[in-house]
C-alpha cells in the first residue's frame, strides 16, 4: 500500500558544459512510495517551475527500462542501488522517510555534461559507426532460414544484444572504460555466423575508436557488470579480448 515519505535531495546543478556545477539541496516532501524515481523528479520539477525556478534537466523517454536514455548516479550507484533496474524503473518504495538522496550525472571523460543530469553519450554512436554492424544492404539477403544458428549461440547473442547503451557501465568503472558496451556488440555478432566475416575488423576498429573517444582502460574491476541494468555479463569482455587478440595477431586486418 502507498505511503508518503519526506526526502532531501542533493542534486547536481550545472547550467552547461562550460560553467562549473554544484550540489543544490532541494526538499521533496510528501512523495508517494508508488512513484517511480523519475516521477518523483517530475513532482519536484513542477514545484520548482511554479516557484519560478529552473527545473532539473534529465534525459528519459520510454520509462520502461529499454531505451537507455535515463540514468543518473544515485547515492553513488548508477541507476541507484536496486540490481538490474534502470532509474526509470526504480520506485520510491525502496527509500525511507527522512532519507537524503544524492543525485549526479554519469561522469566520464567521454561523456560531457550538457546540463544538470543530462550528458552527451554520442561517443557510443561513434563506436558503433566504427564497426558495430554487419555490412548488408537491404534487398540482398537470402532466405532467413537458409543458415541455421544453434539455439544456444542465438541465446548467448541475445544476452549480449540486450545492452541498452545507457552508459552505466562507464559511470560505474573507476577508469571510465567502455569495455562492457563494446564487448556486448562485438559478442553479439561474433557469436552469429552472419557476423563472422567481419569479426576481426570489427573488434579492432571498435576498440580503437573506444580509445580515441577518451574512454579508459579495463582493469577487470567488474563494477560494470554489477551496475548494468540489463545484467550484461563480463564474459563478453573475455570474448572481446579473445576476438581482439586473434584479430591483431592472426588476421590480415590491422
Amino acid at each position: 500500500m502507498s505511503k508518503h515519505i519526506n526526502l532531501t535531495l542533493k542534486v547536481w546543478r550545472q547550467k552547461n558544459q562550460k560553467e562549473k556545477g554544484h550540489f543544490e539541496t532541494i526538499s521533496a516532501p510528501d512523495i508517494s512510495t508508488e512513484m517511480s524515481f523519475l516521477e518523483m523528479l517530475d513532482v519536484v520539477n513542477e514545484k520548482l517551475t511554479l516557484a519560478g525556478k529552473e527545473p532539473i534537466a534529465f534525459d528519459h523517454d520510454c520509462r520502461e527500462g529499454i531505451c537507455g536514455m535515463c540514468g543518473a548516479v544515485v547515492n553513488g550507484r548508477p541507476h541507484g542501488a536496486l540490481k538490474g533496474t534502470t532509474l526509470c524503473q526504480l520506485h520510491m518504495r525502496h527509500f525511507n522517510d527522512g532519507d537524503t538522496i544524492a543525485i549526479e550525472p554519469f561522469r566520464a571523460m567521454a561523456f560531457k555534461i550538457i546540463k544538470d543530469l543530462t550528458v552527451d553519450r554520442s561517443a557510443f554512436d561513434k563506436i558503433i559507426q566504427a564497426g558495430g554492424y554487419i555490412s548488408v544492404n537491404a534487398g540482398g539477403a537470402q532466405d532467413a532460414n537458409a543458415l541455421p544458428v544453434p539455439q544456444d549461440k542465438a541465446e548467448l547473442a541475445m544476452d549480449a544484444a540486450q545492452c541498452i547503451g545507457c552508459g552505466a557501465c562507464v559511470a560505474a568503472c573507476p577508469n571510465a572504460a567502455a569495455m562492457l558496451f563494446v564487448s556486448a556488440k562485438v559478442s553479439q555478432f561474433a557469436l552469429l555466423p552472419q557476423g563472422r566475416p567481419e569479426a576481426a575488423r570489427r573488434a579492432i576498429a571498435m576498440v580503437r575508436e573506444m580509445d580515441r573517444q577518451g574512454f579508459g582502460n579495463c582493469t577487470n574491476e567488474a563494477e560494470c557488470e554489477a551496475e548494468c541494468p540489463k545484467q550484461i555479463s563480463i564474459t563478453n569482455i573475455a570474448r572481446l579480448n579473445r576476438e581482439f587478440f586473434k584479430a591483431s595477431f592472426g588476421s590480415a586486418v590491422k
Binding site: 540482398g140 532467413a144 541455421p148 542465438a154
Partner: peptide
Amino acid sequence: DHCVAQGIPFAR
C-alpha cells in the same frame, strides 16, 4: 530475411 542477415538474434 534482411533482419536475420543484419545479425538480429531472433528466437530459434
